[in-house]
């Protein structure tokens, strides 16, 4: 069991990785990756029973599916940091001949990925399929999935939501990244989700709220969600996050949904990361030096990262 402080420290590292990956290739989606870093950290370092040796079949282990595949940077960092593949490979993100595709893919054999995503609205259905298979096999482990909030505008989600309740898929925990933002603006401006928790509840799901950028709350809520499984209803966590959380000039706007920080954003973020663990210091310009010389400095812990 990791302490909340340890988890916060890992989440900070993952946030640095997100910025590094996207800055390095001047593309990718930092916004919601930063917002979801606490969730990913808790899931892979505390909540899920999973095996980084990676077996596609996922027998007798918990599995996770990312439906909003554009936030691949946070997933890749989490997978690397929890031992699925070498951390140095993060430097190949979005480059030609790499396993770290812009959107998660199985095609190049990256450990940790079990289905491609990127075209929105499909991941929950796949997660339901795995959850059904686990039930058929008497496998007691759980299936987790993450979806964006804007992504819920895709009708397929609601087909999946209806199916999961009807079929009592109660070994499934879906989390919604409820950051209120999407590409063309806020959910409210683009296409309102209305009373989202009430909608899930009306479809027959057990609904839990979570403060997604408060590690203590994330861990407690995910544990509560686990308690709620196997009671005849699928479980959904409405996870309130801030897009760009942890980097002051990115926080709370959709502008960084799919835009990488460039050298004009070379500055030190003062945004506190994960409560009181300290600051995320970014010196992006250094990334033009050979990778081995690139480093991030965590001011609070004075740890020097000379690799990813």
């Amino acid at each position: 069991m990791a302490t909340i402080q340890e988890l916060e420290r890992i989440a900070s590292q993952i946030r640095r990785d997100v910025i590094r990956q996207t800055h390095f290739v001047a593309s990718g989606h930092p916004g919601a990756s930063l917002g979801c870093a606490d969730f990913f950290t808790a899931l892979y370092f505390e909540i899920m029973d999973h095996d980084p040796k990676f077996n596609m079949d996922a027998k007798n282990e918990d599995v996770f599916f990312l439906s909003n595949g554009h936030i691949s940077p946070v997933w890749y960092s989490t997978l690397a940091r929890s031992g699925y593949f070498p951390v140095e490979e993060l430097a190949t993100f979005r480059k030609i001949n790499a396993r770290l595709q812009g959107h998660p893919a199985t095609h190049e054999g990256l450990p940790g990925i079990r289905v491609a995503s990127g075209s929105l609205g499909q991941g929950m259905s796949v997660a339901i399929g795995v959850a059904l298979a686990k039930k058929m096999d008497g496998d007691k482990k759980l299936v987790f999935a993450l979806t964006g909030d804007g992504e819920l505008q895709e009708g397929q989600n609601w087909e999946a939501i209806m199916f999961a309740a009807h079929n009592k898929i109660d070994n499934l925990i879906v989390t919604v990244d409820y950051n209120g933002q999407q590409i063309d603006g806020s959910n409210e401006d683009v296409l309102s989700l209305g009373d989202l928790p009430a909608k899930w509840a009306a479809f027959g799901w057990y609904v839990i709220h979570m403060r997604g950028n408060d590690m203590g709350n994330v861990v407690a809520t995910l544990n509560e969600a686990k308690q709620r499984t196997r009671q005849g209803k699928p479980v959904v966590i409405i996870m309130q996050t801030d897009m760009g959380f942890g980097v002051d000039f990115m926080v709370g706007t959709h502008k960084w949904h799919g835009k990488a920080p460039d050298d004009s954003s070379n500055r030190t973020s003062t945004g506190a990361v994960g409560g009181n663990t300290g600051r995320l210091s970014l010196s992006l310009r250094w990334c033009h030096a050979p990778l081995s010389q690139c480093r991030y400095i965590n001011l609070s812990s004075t740890i020097f990262y000379n690799q990813f």
């Binding site: 290739v25 593309s27 990718g28 595949g69 979005r94 595709q101 812009g102 959107h103 893919a105 095609h107 491609a116 995503s117 990127g118 075209s119």
Partner: peptide, 8 residues
Amino acid sequence: LGEDGATH
């Protein structure tokens, strides 16, 4: 389309 990859 470039970096977004094969899904797109």
